[in-house]
Nucleic acid binder design. Structure first.
Lengths: 346, 346
DNA sequence: GCCAGTTACTACACGCCGTTGCTTTAATCG
DNA sequence: CGATTAAAGCAACGGCGTGTAGTAACTGGC
């Protein structure tokens, strides 16, 4: 189904996405969006009216009337993002550009239950509230359902079986809430900050587990039950050591074994092979590495991955470490919420 | 960019996609598409005007005016699809519903060159021409570029380096032509025939190589350079036997070795593990098996794959053999062309 | 200093999209 | 056979991007 509201929202989102990358002019927006100059004019005047854009000087490009520069009013809208791990809750405040403005971190008790969590979340959110706050995004460990906002049965959290977290949090916080898997919010962080430029990317989150967030053709791929990206339990050694998942020779098992015995070269090499497989399967040109393990040894992981990617290819793959560091999941959750308001409609 | 033309094309495609599944009524179309009844009325009258739909009786659902049944006029538009293999060219004629009406098969000389191929294609196409023919789709072995229609450098075909096949074929045949990788056209075949119902699926093509076509959230995932789906050279045994690709322990190498020594159980089991990995990564609920190897031993491959998929899951995975058999790639190419005219616009 | 040339931008009428409100049509039910 | 119910069409409407034409603001030549 598509109607005029969708049409407007879509074009607004395209223009805003282009404006997020930096200062632009109406002419450039028209060129890069495919919209006519008149349409861009209308869209821009709407966005200026909403306080999302401002005119900021002119840029002269040879003869003729100079182009008017447009700038995103980044602090006109704010969002909070939360990362929930088994021992820690992290909440960050970001603006419309995806810049992290503030953060709060608190430990969570072992095997915390939903009421405890929601109270703690509320406490941290209260410390970061603002009048321009649009809502809160939550990046949780899977499995969960993004559409319904229900957490299913994350391992290690015995009190979390089919908990309608989004509804609970919305009620307690009095704000719109979105819920997604940590790997998905992390890749949203990269996608939102780079704007329309980044359309295909994989974010590899290496912590105790190994998950990936996939941005395919400009959209986050979640799969039929928001469970896509469980890459840690992919077989990479048919006759390998048994894994906690019941199968054997999983990427995660081999990586963690190598890491545990201090063999960083082997550990990063396994991640490298796995990423190379993924790049080949999905035909991706951007790989972003994140997670505690990676941030502890960034250059080792960068080297390990780059060494395993095909060289001298017609398709160069850009491999980088997330510039958001430990905030990537929480910040991405905030941007996921921003994209509910100002991203492409569905 | 989105405009009114896009809007109309999109909604037309949604309605047509729903109508493809079988006889429907306006009320059901409105329910399932999310469009208002009035919008459906307008769309349907457009489609009837174009000869794509007809009213075919009524269906009584209790009290009130009976619903009018609508039926796709399947033979109102036809398309040809070609599958190009290293030794054979297959061309099939399909209607708007994706039903194969006719076919022609011809051998291709070893290491054939582009002119030879285009002539042979033209010969087979001429034998199947019709006044309602919309164009020709071509499923080729990769790598190639779907957008530009250029074949890059398929192994075993020395005369094919950066050949603009789509342009060459359009000129020779005098018909619109689309080009895509064989695995992609194959998954289009499944998607088009099942209509809007099938939104996430993987088609696994097992022949001399092993490739997958991915339907993610209703769209074929091609990757940044139309090269996605190269799954055969994914590592499944880190210290496995060397592969022609230069790495070792690839799915394809292990599968072919097992198949060569007649170990069908091992061969199908390797495909099963690989498919289970893929299902887990992409969170897919439909797997379709195809290709010469599968069609030679369908039940063995079905069993091998089903045995490796997680059981008693909350997410059941449907595994099947393509009902189109040897025609799946060629028929899918025809449907890819149909979707250029009557699928969702981009 | 001025005017032609060039480019950026927008005012306005327009065509066409889905929507809203209402009417017509065609069945069932009592 | 009239009341009720549901499907479907008709007409007016708001709002989308588009096309045409006009205005604004600069450069460059003389």
């Amino acid at each position: 189904m598509a109607n005029l509201r969708f049409l407007r929202g879509y074009n607004d989102a395209v223009v805003l996405g282009l404006a997020r990358s930096g200062a632009v002019t109406r002419v450039e927006l028209a060129d890069r969006s495919g919209l006519t100059p008149q349409a861009v004019s209308k869209v821009v005047s709407r966005l200026i009216g909403d306080g999302l854009l401002v005119e900021s000087g002119t840029r002269n490009v040879g003869v003729g009337k100079p182009r008017t520069l447009l700038k995103l009013v980044a602090d006109s809208r704010l969002a909070l993002g939360a990362q929930v791990e088994r021992d820690e809750l992290r909440v960050v405040l970001t603006d419309l550009a995806g810049t992290v403005l503030d953060r709060a971190v608190a430990p969570l008790p072992r095997d915390f239950d939903p009421p405890t969590f929601v109270e703690e979340l509320n406490r941290l959110v209260d410390g970061l509230r603002s009048d321009r706050l649009l809502g809160v995004g939550i990046g949780f460990v899977g499995p969960l359902d993004h559409r319904t906002g229900v957490v299913h049965y994350p391992t290690g959290l015995t009190a979390w079986h089919d908990v309608p977290l989004r509804a609970l949090a919305e009620q307690r916080l009095g704000l719109p809430v979105v819920l997604d898997k940590d790997t998905n919010t992390a890749v949203v962080a990269e996608a939102w900050r780079r704007g329309e430029e980044l359309r295909d990317a994989v974010l590899v989150l290496v912590g105790t587990g190994l998950g990936v967030g996939m941005l395919l053709d400009g959209r986050v791929h979640r799969g039929v039950r928001t469970n896509a990206g469980e890459y840690g339990h992919t077989t990479i050694q048919l006759d390998g050591p048994p894994c906690v998942c019941g199968r054997s020779g999983c990427i995660e098992a081999l990586h963690n074994l190598a890491a545990a015995r201090g063999d960083l070269v082997e550990a990063t090499s396994i991640v490298g092979v796995a990423v190379a497989d993924l790049v080949q399967l999905l035909d991706i040109d951007h790989v972003v590495l994140a997670g505690r393990a990676v941030l502890a040894e960034p250059t080792a992981y960068l080297d390990g991955v780059r060494a395993r990617l095909p060289k001298d290819e017609w398709l160069p793959v850009d491999v980088s470490i997330t510039p958001l560091g430990d905030d990537v999941v929480a910040a991405g959750a905030a941007m996921l919420l921003l994209s509910e308001f100002y991203g492409r409609p569905r």
